[in-house]
Design a binder for these strands. Structure first.
Lengths: 117, 117
DNA sequence: GCATTATTTTGATGAAGACGTAAGTATCTC
DNA sequence: GAGATACTTACGTCTTCATCAAAATAATGC
């Protein structure tokens, strides 16, 4: 049985990840941590205001932390909440395995029939 | 580096999973596969029409397959696309590990200082 | 065939999301 | 302090989402 977790925290993380621009931002931070808004939004096909809103959603979900240095705001990846998503998805792994096993059984059965027709 | 995957398929899966009602539906199917709309919507705090739309989104994302038997429509879990999410999230695992290592180093450093002040 | 049950289609509506523009506040540089 | 730079706030708009209601379709059982 898969444990159904409806906690607000996990929900925010899932929602934050449900946009490829935001996943792209996390990717960018995983390559170079501590980038400014200007650096990050240079990679997104939108205005800096659009990028800012996405970063705020990531921050509210706890996936990004920020630190103000002078007039710049540095953004850092926090990978911990992603672990929650990985754990949730991992619960379904055994269902995929079962499916693979069934497929294997089926293929072997086919093979048997070919040998002894 | 985390591979940024913007394919439409993955995007649909992420969006479909970004709602706890839909994750709950997957959970229900993982417990008892092949349930009808009526059976499933009995567990959700909404009308059957609301539940139907959620099921359609899951179906479009490939997370649920359906089979019509008489006047009933049976819903089956397809766990395979969830694997894509697990893989994506798994890419961030090493960042969590790095963080743990740094924390461990820090704690050991503290311990050293206590011993030799 | 007729009443019942299961599902679908087709709007309607209010909320939330994803942008954008324009003006405002710090901060740095000179 | 004047001008450039980095970010923010405060809107407006357009789209998508979540939900419900009512009517339509389809299958079952007697």
């Amino acid at each position: 049985m898969v444990t159904y977790n409806s906690s607000m925290e996990v929900e925010h993380v899932f929602k934050a990840l449900a946009d490829h621009h935001r996943r792209h931002l996390l990717d960018l931070l995983s390559q170079t941590d501590g980038q400014t808004l200007t650096e990050l939004c240079a990679h997104l096909p939108m205005t800096r205001f659009g990028a800012m809103k996405h970063l705020r959603i990531l921050e509210e979900a706890g996936l990004v932390t920020t630190r103000k240095v002078g007039r710049e705001k540095l953004h850092y990846l926090n990978p911990v909440p992603i672990q929650g998503v990985a754990d949730w998805a991992g619960q379904y792994h055994r269902f995929v395995e079962e499916r693979m096993d069934r497929l294997e059984d089926y293929l072997q059965e086919l093979q048997q029939k070919e040998k002894l027709p």
